[in-house]
Design a protein around this nucleic acid. Structure first.
Length: 846
RNA sequence: GCCCUCGUGGUGAAAUGGUAGACACAAAGGACUUAAAAUCCUUGCCCGUAUGGGAGUGACAGUUCGAGUCUGUCCGAGGGCACCA
């Protein structure tokens, strides 16, 4: 019997596939399948999360390939980003070199997994061949009005002289500099994503193959709210304040107006010392959403009053308040303290009148608990609205408002425009220039790409592009006048918002993508990645597709990803030594007295299993695992232990068991090859065939439904079936044919072993002609079924019968069972329940 | 605060309203071996030698001949959104 050397067969088949460049495309071009996994950020080495992502993707890609599909299965690198700049600062090298080195390491590691990736299609977002086209798209968007320049508030790190993302601000301080972060107003570039708010929301309904959870998260993020705008006349002058509300039904309970500190009406106070002090107080609150949410409500009372639109002669004070945001609604509200918690808190603090307008028996009780009543009820104290329900009142008041021409029904979205400017070096330069007269224009497309300079001082404070001696100096192509380049670069989410389009024609020089290739491959049939991208990346990509459609008439597609699958994380136990320092799994030793530290032999405290992370050191290196157990075992384990959408616990015992199973399959294969002819028993043969065919059916169904862990459980069962039939009276040919089918079913999961076994079975190395085994439907019909017999709903016996046994025959068969006879004795059968192929239930007396 | 998801053995988990715990990990016992490793077999809560019986899917109700699965209330864990007017 041949012995197997796992690392030899890994190498053999990886080199076989790589020589063929994984181009196993079928002649049937009609059946295309675009299988895409989220491309990685080249941070240094691959981690188990990548292994899981790409193992799942590879199962789907290979399964589709051997089902006759023409499969696009590419890979690339999300190569721009902050870590490269930070690493460059620490090691005093260029971000480009650092990135390239990481890409080559990670590509080598991914190849060790034996993925069916077509590496000819490899792209990297930091290559000018890629970002050139991104700049082109940016200009297209700009020309169509989808890019705007606006002034907004940002988190400004005064030490680093740069803008920080919200997640880079920790407790109000810069994560690197530890400097107090300021709110600063800056001119920034924005993608006009809010133009598509309603479309992005409505079209979620068309995404039938997306997880409901992701769609819901996007729905909440877009945040549609239906309400109305109302103009309040200012008593002191002819101006008015426009407010937005979703509760126009509470208008009679309005006792104050509140406007944002950035509201145009505040302009006349800007120079007042009191107002300046108030604004200072506001900006002292952090910029994280949580900090804002928990901040105390403070107000600045203006000397203005507004006229209540429905109560003649009633004047209500106007406040400037920190809880009103300028970029939501109109930046102004009317406060109805009785029925809104924030308004209630504010009114209590500034002793503003509280008028109840919705009936509730708990109102006074809630008031003493300092709570507003936000529930349902009928309207009171509201003139012509009295007695109506909230819904009725909303309808009626909106009609009145529209009749009086002081406002109208209005839909508002939470989704804001996407700010894409970053004061960074390692990103795609924004192809815009500033002219002397202050205007801003795009560069001429013939000048693309606007390249990143290599000779930068990475250690300079602020943006190295801005500090570069010559880079930003340029000339306007049309007029020849001097101009200054935009020195901000694009958010890296832009890079990943269209890479899936580039994969359709990654080498094309003239355009971002080829129209024919686009038509053929798009949309992505199956997209696979982490849940952490549920909102931003997926929403931005959906926006990009629409923006491109808006710019190019012949693009018909709106949704880039037809199917989406979000996999769970890879977790591992956490370890701490006696001093509370984190230990990595390879610093742990198993002894009879428990786990000990390899470093000093001290006792180790085992913590809960958590997502693998550098900070907790609970990381297992995929490369070393592959070297020990082989690529198939690593892939197998990570797929077998949990449903792919849930978190999986990594365990060395588990992967070692997978390795043993790989060897067991090899042994089964050898035993079948070495088997001597046996006498045939038609009975054994038939049973085996029926059972085997059923497994093809089940495994096919399970893969189609992404139940990969259950599919693997069935493969274990097939292995046992094969093993137990080697000594039975089954023809060699039948066993061999079944083993070939078995190995084909194994191929998406453990391709190296599968191909090696197939080559032994068929006597040649082959791949192209592999076809997923066919299900014999007539055999499925012949399958026997187990009928369960219950008495009063309790299981009392079972028997195996032919499929579709009639009720009459089933009942008489059931009554022959010893235990059933015993239980039916002296009892009267009141009713028989019979469900074909499933169950018999006798309902009896007593 | 609002919204969503999930609670099944020592563990990861299976189960179109129809045999709960498939499959695997770990454990215990056994076989082989001088021994170990490897491999294989058995066991898994309670009563019983056993055929068998009882309890049992976070808790309590309900619908049903039959509920892990459907409905309601509660408890617990995780996630998303969060001065969004």
């Amino acid at each position: 019997m041949d012995k197997i050397n796992i690392s030899d067969i890994d190498k053999k088949w990886q080199s076989f596939w790589s020589k063929k460049k994984n181009k196993f495309k079928k002649t049937d071009k009609k059946k295309k399948f675009y299988c895409l996994e989220m491309f990685p950020y080249p941070s240094g080495k691959i981690h188990m999360g990548h292994v899981r992502n790409y193992a799942i993707g590879d199962v789907i890609a290979r399964y589709k390939m051997i089902n006759g599909f023409n499969v696009l299965h590419p890979m690339g690198w999300d190569a721009f980003g902050l870590p490269a700049e930070n690493a460059a600062k620490e090691n005093n090298l260029n971000p480009k070199d650092w990135t390239k080195k990481n890409i080559s390491t990670m590509k080598y590691q991914l190849q060790l997994l034996g993925l069916s990736i077509d590496w000819d299609l490899e792209i990297s977002t930091c290559d000018e061949e890629y970002y050139k086209h991104q700049q082109e798209l940016f200009i297209d968007f700009y020309n169509k009005g989808l890019v705007v320049r606006k002034e907004t508030y940002v988190n400004w790190d005064p030490a680093e002289k740069t803008v920080l993302a919200n997640e880079q601000v920790i407790d109000g301080r810069g994560w690197r500099s530890n400097a107090l972060v300021e709110r600063k107003k800056l001119h920034q570039w924005f993608f006009n994503i809010s133009k598509f708010s309603n479309e992005l929301l409505e079209d979620l309904n068309t995404l039938k193959e997306w997880p409901e959870r992701v769609k819901l998260m996007q729905k909440n993020w877009i945040g549609k709210s239906v309400g109305c705008e109302i103009d309040f006349k200012i008593s002191e002058n002819d101006n008015s304040v426009r407010v937005f509300t979703t509760r126009p039904d509470t208008i009679f309970g309005a006792t104050f107006l509140a406007i944002s500190a950035d509201h145009p009406l505040c302009e006349s106070y800007i120079k007042q010392a009191k107002f300046i002090e108030f604004k200072k107080k506001c900006s002292r609150v952090g910029t994280t959403e949580e900090a804002i949410a928990n901040a105390e409500k403070i107000g600045f009372k203006t000397d203005l009053e507004a006229e209540h639109p429905f109560i003649i002669g009633k004047k209500i004070p106007i406040y400037v308040s920190n809880f009103i945001l300028m970029d939501y609604g109109t930046g102004a509200i009317f406060g109805c303290p009785a029925h809104d918690q924030r308004d209630f808190d504010f009114a209590t603090k500034y002793k503003i009148e509280i008028i109840q307008v919705v009936k509730s028996k708990d109102f006074e009780k809630l008031k003493t608990e300092k709570k507003a009543f936000t529930g349902d009820g009928s309207i009171i104290n509201s003139d012509f609205l009295n007695g109506l329900t909230i819904t009725e009142a909303k309808e009626k008041i909106v009609k009145e408002i529209e009749k009086k021409k002081i406002g109208k029904k209005k839909v508002t979205f939470r989704l804001k425009d996407w700010g894409v400017s970053r004061q960074r070096y390692w990103g795609c330069p924004i192809p815009m220039i500033y002219l002397k007269d202050g205007s801003v224009v795009p560069v001429d497309k013939t000048e693309l790409p606007i390249r990143l300079p290599d000779d930068i001082d990475i250690n300079s404070k602020g943006n190295p592009l801005d500090n570069h001696p010559t880079w930003k100096k340029t000339k306007h192509k049309k007029t020849g006048e001097d101009a200054i380049r935009e020195t901000d670069t694009l958010d890296t989410f832009v890079d990943s918002s269209w890479y899936f389009l580039r994969f359709c024609s990654p080498k094309l020089k003239s355009k971002p993508f080829d129209d024919e290739a686009f038509k053929y491959w798009m949309p992505v049939d199956q997209y696979i990645g982490g849940i952490e991208h549920a909102i931003l990346h997926l929403l931005y990509s959906r926006f990009f597709m629409r923006a491109i459609k808006f710019c190019k008439k012949d693009i018909k597609i709106k949704e880039p990803f037809r199917g989406l699958f979000t996999q769970g994380m890879v977790c591992h136990e956490t370890y701490k030594d006696e001093k509370g320092k984190w230990l990595s799994p390879d610093q742990i030793e198993n002894t009879k007295l428990g786990k000990k530290s390899k470093i000093d032999g001290s006792k180790v405290k085992v913590g809960p299993s958590e997502a693998m992370s550098k900070s907790k050191k609970n990381i297992v290196d995929p490369e070393s695992m592959i070297k020990i157990f082989g690529a198939d075992a690593v892939r197998w384990f990570i797929l077998s232990d949990s449903p792919p959408e849930r978190d999986v616990q990594w365990s060395t015992a588990g992967v070692s068991a997978s390795h043993k199973f790989i060897l067991r399959i090899w042994n089964i294969n050898q035993k079948i090859l070495d088997r001597k002819q046996t006498e045939i028993s038609s009975d054994d043969e038939k049973k085996f065939e029926l059972k085997f065919n059923e497994y093809i059916f089940k495994i096919t169904d399970l893969i189609e439904n992404f139940q990969l862990n259950v599919a693997i459980a069935k493969i274990y069962e097939v292995a046992s079936l094969m093993e137990s039939n080697i000594d039975k009276k089954i023809g060699n040919k039948n066993l061999l044919v079944s083993q070939i089918k078995f190995m084909k079913m194994l191929l998406p999961f453990a391709p190296h072993l599968s191909c090696e076994c197939l080559s032994k079975l068929e006597g040649k190395n082959f791949f192209e002609e592999i076809q997923w085994p066919k299900i014999d439907k007539t055999l499925l019909e012949k399958q026997e079924v187990t009928l369960v017999v219950q008495i009063n709903g309790k299981k009392r016996g079972l028997f195996v019968a032919k499929k579709d046994l009639s009720e009459k025959d089933a009942l008489s068969e059931a009554k022959k069972i010893e235990n059933i006879k015993k239980n039916l004795k002296d009892k009267k059968i009141l009713k028989n329940i019979f469900v074909k192929n499933k169950i018999i239930n006798f309902i009896v007396t007593g």
